[in-house]
């Protein structure tokens, strides 16, 4: 499970810019559990988007947005609404957002920041990965995470290293920034690379006290006492 938080609505509206018609994908997995993309909070976000002058052409709730097949299926069921939209707002973790981006040739805008995956064991993470950086950059980079796709986690474009589109660190791996550039060029959004987003804030990655009080942390702390109690003879 990856914990996430909703981005401020103004940041999401800022991503959308002049795009008027949007399709919304909301995940019923981890981010719903975090009360970010559950039905109630998604409805609230949709209302905010509409208040901000956007037309929501349709919405898909996907059980696990990290599942590529499931995402493709859900989007196919609403093909017309997806086609009618200029961009897609995704309320899911960074993995889910990238899965949607890989499935559709439209700009994908994150509605969330993925903040934390620590403490969850048995997690099988496949590509595309999310670094839980706490400040999702997937809008700027066309739905491909620069922190995980680039071997140097660069935020301001490729280094001088890529050769024939492959990474200097591992020539069997595509340069993340070439993928980002090609994707943006395909969407007609390469000009976005003129923007210089703010520096990465590593503090966003520290789980705060609030989060440490969640049930999972509590379980770890409380579990020994519970076990002891359970072992006491009745």
């Amino acid at each position: 499970m990856i914990a996430s938080e909703l981005k401020p609505i103004d940041e999401i509206l800022g991503f959308l810019g002049s795009e008027e018609r949007v399709f919304v994908v909301a995940c019923d997995g981890c981010s719903a559990g975090c009360e970010v993309s559950d039905e109630e909070h998604t409805a609230a976000m949709v209302a905010e988007l509409e208040k901000g002058g956007k037309v929501v052409t349709g919405m898909a709730r996907v059980d696990m947005t990290c599942n590529q097949g499931l995402v493709a299926l859900m989007l196919m069921q609403q093909m017309e609404a997806v086609k009618a939209a200029e961009g897609i707002v995704v309320a899911a973790c960074g993995v889910g957002i990238q899965t949607v981006a890989a499935a559709v040739e439209k700009p994908v805008h994150p509605a969330t920041n993925s903040v934390y995956a620590g403490g969850f064991s048995g997690l099988w993470r496949s590509e595309p990965r999310c670094a839980e950086c706490g400040n999702c950059m997937l809008d700027y980079t066309g739905g491909i995470c620069p922190y995980t796709a680039c071997s140097k986690s660069l935020l301001y474009g490729s280094c001088g290293g890529p050769s024939d589109g492959m990474c200097e660190v591992d020539p069997t791996v595509e340069c993340g920034w070439m993928r980002i550039y090609e994707r943006l060029a395909k969407l007609g959004r390469a000009e976005r690379l003129k923007d210089m987003p703010p520096l990465r804030n590593f503090r966003n990655m520290l789980p705060g006290g609030e989060r440490r009080r969640t049930s999972l942390w509590a379980l770890e702390l409380v579990a020994p006492e519970v076990m002891e109690e359970a072992e006491e003879p009745r």
Binding site: S151, K152, Y156, V169, L199
Partner: peptide, 22 residues
Amino acid sequence: TGDHVVLGDHVEARPVFDLDSV
């Protein structure tokens, strides 16, 4: 930005890249 550590002589080092050239 700088070459990645794996291209050098201390390939087990932790690469930083907190900033980049820009």
